[in-house]
Simulated scan of single mutants.
Amino acid sequence: MRNSRTGLAAALVLVCAVASSGCGGAQAPTRYYSLLAEAGQRPSAAPTEKTLSVSVGPVIIPDILKQTRIATSKGDGSYNLSEYHRWSGDVDRDIARALAEHLGRGLGTEQVFVFPWDQAGAPAYRVLADVISMGGNPDGEATLHVRWTVVPRSGAAEPVTRRTDLSEKCPGPDHADWVAAQQRNVEHLAAAIAATILDLHGQGT
Rank of each mutant, 00 (worst) to 15 (best):
G22E: 15
S53N: 09
L65G: 02
A98Y: 00
D177I: 06
E158Q: 13
V131L: 04
G108V: 09
I132Y: 07
V186C: 02
G75D: 13
R42K: 04
V112S: 07
Q67G: 03
R69S: 03
H85Q: 12
C16R: 11
S88I: 11
D177Q: 12
P173K: 09
S78L: 14
P116L: 07
I61H: 02
T143V: 11
C16A: 15
E83Y: 15
V151Y: 05
R93W: 06
W87G: 02
S34F: 00
P47T: 14
S20P: 08
Q203Y: 05
P173W: 07
L81K: 12
F115Y: 15
Y125V: 08
L99A: 06
E101S: 05
P138M: 06
T164A: 05
G7H: 06
K169N: 11
W178Q: 06
V127S: 01
G75F: 11
A28C: 13
L14R: 08
T6F: 13
C170W: 00
G77H: 14
Q119C: 07
G108E: 09
D94I: 00
V91H: 01
Y84N: 15
K74L: 14
E168R: 03
H102I: 00
K66E: 09
H175L: 09
S167V: 10
L52W: 10
R31W: 08
T72A: 02
T161A: 08
I70L: 09
Q183A: 01
G22Q: 15
L8W: 10
H201N: 07
I70Q: 02
S20G: 15
A28W: 14
R2L: 12
L36N: 04
I197V: 12
G75W: 11
P58N: 10
A71R: 04
V186Y: 01
A190D: 04
I193R: 01
T205D: 10
G57H: 05
Q183H: 05
T6M: 13
D63E: 10
S20Y: 13
Q203A: 11
L35I: 03
G75Q: 11
D94Q: 03
D199A: 15
I60H: 14
A98T: 01
N185W: 04
R163E: 14
T149F: 09
R69Y: 02
G25N: 10
A96N: 03
A39L: 00
S20R: 13
D199M: 14
R2V: 10
A142S: 10
A156V: 14
A71M: 09
S53C: 07
I95K: 02
G40I: 01
A26H: 14
A180R: 03
G40Y: 00
N80S: 12
R162K: 15
G135K: 04
N3Y: 09
I61W: 00
V146Q: 11
N3Q: 11
Q27E: 15
P29I: 11
I61L: 02
D199F: 14
R5D: 04
E101M: 05
V186P: 01
A19F: 14
H102G: 01
A181N: 02
G140C: 03
A11G: 01
L52V: 10
V131K: 03
Y32I: 13
L198P: 05
T72L: 02
